[in-house]
């Protein structure tokens, strides 16, 4: 019955954030063990400054109203929910170095690790997703 979901988040737009956190929270609420590896632009999703103001794709800004109309939760809410549900979040050390992101720039409760940290989590996952 046990389910393990491994997700790679490598893009930093609002759409990307919803894809990642909707699947992550839905899986965690369905009793799955969930881990997300944030790498390259995916780091935006867990940065204090950036996570609350992620951009919509160019030319798609009008979807902002659609999000509101559909009463979709904010990314900050989904992040809190993910943490509360025990979703394991790993920030990629190498991309943090490249992009000069410090651990203190990230929201609380994030582990920093390398590719092998994620691979160790993902090796027996039965669902693996990349966004």
């Amino acid at each position: 019955m046990s389910n393990k979901v491994a997700i790679i988040a490598s893009n930093g737009g609002l759409f990307d954030a919803y894809k990642v956190f909707n699947i992550a929270t839905a899986s965690a609420a369905t009793d799955a063990e969930v881990g997300i590896f944030f790498t390259f632009e995916g780091l935006n999703l867990i940065q204090k400054e950036a996570s609350g103001q992620l951009p919509l794709p160019e030319g798609k800004e009008h979807f902002q109203e659609g999000f509101k109309a559909a009463q979709v939760p904010s990314i900050d809410e989904l992040l809190l929910m993910a943490k509360d549900l025990g979703v394991k979040m790993i920030a990629c050390q190498m991309t943090m170095d490249v992009m000069n992101v410090k651990k203190e720039d990230l929201i609380s409760g994030i582990d920093v690790g390398g590719a092998v940290t994620f691979l160790d989590f993902a090796k027996d996952a039965n669902v693996t997703l990349t966004f």
């Binding site: 909707n22 929270t25 369905t30 009793d31 009463q71 979709v72 939760p73 549900l85």
Partner: peptide, 13 residues
């Protein structure tokens, strides 16, 4: 009521 996916599931859990 009024909640969008995935919140109904999260709240149910």
């Amino acid at each position: 009521k009024g909640l969008a996916c995935p919140m109904p599931i999260v709240k149910t859990k």
